[in-house]
Amino acid sequence: MSNPMPGVEIANTNKLIAKYDNETKTIFGFWVYIMTDCVLFASLFAVFAVLRNNTFGGPSGAQLFSLPYVLAETLVLLSSSFSCGLAVLSAQKRHKNHVIFWFLITFILGAIFLTLELNEFHKFIAMGDSWRRSGFLSSYFTLVATHGLHITIGLIWMAVMIGYIIKRGITDGVLKRIRLISLFWHFLDVVWIFIFTIVYLFGVLK
């Protein structure tokens, strides 16, 4: 009623949508997915924050965590995020071999990170402190392993991408996919900042 010409409004909206090229639409859509994934992580952080003191006679974070080890994990993931950025830069310049090189470095660093994380889980479980031990450990394993699962999916995606680049070279479509995977990988590093701070650093504070 307040709008005398609804048709004009719709036409404008359509023009607006048409203004986006497909690449921008895809990247924006992926960005929306990443933001909803943040909400998933936030709910796991909320569970962890609520259960962090419910150790039920089991070990607390301060007794369990080794900070130098976690710092090493953090720096490895941060470096892989950086090398992923370098891969995007090379892709913009269409240097196929450089892209493959930087993605391989990213993949190796990501695999090292995942190995470190699984080794830490293995150590805890071997000591009898698995997710069954207490509410604190259940929430710890759920939060950190969900991040680890994302890393695993990212690594599989990256391996497929490397094969794809070798086969097709850097076309516009491939460049778009490279942007998406780098967005995903940087996002995982952003989530890790908060895991590092809230789970590990807050956990060992006296």
């Binding site: 986006y20 924006f28 960005w31 933001m35 909803t36 909320a46 569970v47 924050a49």
Partner: peptide, 27 residues
């Protein structure tokens, strides 16, 4: 920069709102 920055920022801010309510409210 790069690809619809204003829209990305809006989605980011709405995500942060949800996160603050969810985490802050739970605690």
């Amino acid at each position: 920069q790069e690809f619809a920055p204003r829209l990305k920022l809006i989605v980011l801010l709405s995500m942060l709102t949800v996160v603050v309510i969810l985490v802050g409210g739970s605690i």
